[in-house]
Amino acid sequence: MMNSLHIDASKCTGCLQCEMACSYENHGVFATSKSRIKVFDFHSTGRKVPYTCTQCAEAWCMHACPVGAIHEDKALGAKVVNETTCVGCKVCTIACPFGTINYVADTGKVQKCDLCAGKPACAEACPTGAITFVDASWTGLDRMRAWAEKLDTNAPTA
């Protein structure tokens, strides 16, 4: 069964352990600015919302990439950037309607959540269970997909 990141914002305290873990996993440093997951802090409601790529089926980033640098890891369902192939053109960053694939000026490449090859560091680091890595059917992915369909640029209807 395919797992995916399940985010329950009501459990998030805004401790940023996920951002720390993500940047350490992918860049070897504790630097939240380099994290692929980001906690948004809504002062008016007091809500903290961790947010990252949902590995959407439409994969606008993957289809828009002009050099085939993004592929789907079939086992994980993750859309993965091949840094060697990426030329840093940033077309994927404007194509992704979720804003979750981003350009990293230091490397001249883009980065996105790749589910850490099946062991997401953010979920392991989260002390409150706000981020868990669970069976995809639990994660509200359907809601995300319903939203994605609103964009409806390419969804076959038959």
Binding site: C96, T100, K150, L151
Partner: peptide, 13 residues
Amino acid sequence: THHIGALRGLIQT
């Protein structure tokens, strides 16, 4: 550049 794609999401939805 950060989160720039969300502008597409906001406009197109």
